Computed example of a mutant assay.
Amino acid sequence: MPAPSGRLLPACLLAAAAALALSGCSSSGDTADNDKGEPPVSGIKKITATAGLAFPLDSYERSDTETSQLDRAQNVLVERCMKRYGFAYDAPDPLAPTRSQPNAKVFGLVDARTAARYGYAEPPRSSGIPQKKPAPQLGATGQQVLAGPDKKHAKGGGSTAKVPMSLADSRTRKSGFVVNGKDVPIGGCSREAFLELYAPKADAVDVMYVFNLRAESESRALSDSRVKEVTKAWSGCMAKAGYTTSDPASVSRDLGIMDDARNSTKAIAAAKADVRCKTEVNYSGIRYAVQSAYQKRLIDKSAETLELLKKQSQERLRRAAELTA
């Protein structure tokens, strides 16, 4: 997902934070490293709002509603696993669907009304469906069952450093940490539940696959001569307005507008100039055209894996529907 600045987080960092990706930091796999030419673009449109903007890779992404259903299903599997070891674990409900328009800030701040009202601050969001209370605090053993035994407790060669990549893989390995006469899975019930839903077999496509393609398309677009040119034009426009900044993703930082000052009078004035300059040079229109072109190229090169991903996504949703019925 886009970071608040509008730029994607590095795939490796997100994978590490989630600690659930099938492989921590992988490349897109099917793409050719030596494919460095700039793809042609045509019919560049004037874009002044990016909320709801559709990218070629969007069709391979889950909707908020689907993500919420998968999260609930995963919770069911975690609770079942914990019960095997004698723990009545009540997993916290996942966040309700945000109902926000996708890609609203994919290129940073572009909406004039938002800039005039909030500056660089995030507009308030509805809390959605209230979450139930967090699950009761687990003791040391319960935590080991939930998250997996650490190196101190893993005696059979298993450790949190070598987590299984599929449920089939998990079934063939032991952690050496036994609770109630049963070996706790490497990675615990959380990992087992994830694998059961997302990677029951070894051929499962990495859940980060599309994200990595997105990150690659963005990286290539930012290095593209056409994007560099429009970024330079935007920077020149900002300079004329009295603001020294060279990157639309770091305007508030460049101008020293941080934290609580993001919706100050100074921030609002800068945000309005930022949006005005993006509109003047058609920054969003050119970024969209170029980035979409790179995504289409990556889709062509990754067609086989993406087709498999679509099939596996349908299977996961069917399984999730069964678990949450």
Rank of each mutant, 00 (worst) to 15 (best):
D247H: 04
L195G: 13
K240A: 02
T172W: 06
Y288E: 03
R72E: 15
P56G: 13
L309H: 04
A267S: 02
S264C: 05
L57G: 08
D33K: 03
D33G: 09
E122V: 06
S292I: 05
L9C: 05
Q137T: 08
S159K: 12
A116M: 15
L309M: 12
R72V: 01
E229D: 12
S68Q: 02
A204F: 01
V207H: 09
K83I: 14
L95G: 02
V290P: 12
A249W: 11
E196V: 12
P102H: 09
Y198I: 06
L213Y: 04
Q143S: 15
P92L: 03
A303K: 14
T245E: 00
P2V: 07
V106N: 02
T50H: 08
E216T: 07
R316L: 08
N75A: 13
G37W: 10
K310A: 11
A199H: 05
M238C: 04
L167W: 15
P10A: 03
G24W: 07
S23R: 12
T67A: 02
A32L: 14
A273Y: 03
L70S: 03
A249H: 07
R72L: 02
L20P: 01
S159G: 06
V230W: 00
R84E: 15
A215C: 04
K83A: 15
K132P: 01
V210I: 07
A270G: 00
P10G: 14
P102G: 11
D259P: 10
Y85G: 14
P92S: 00
P2A: 10
S59V: 14
S223E: 11
A3N: 06
V281D: 01
Y294K: 03
S252D: 14
D259K: 06
G148L: 12
K155I: 11
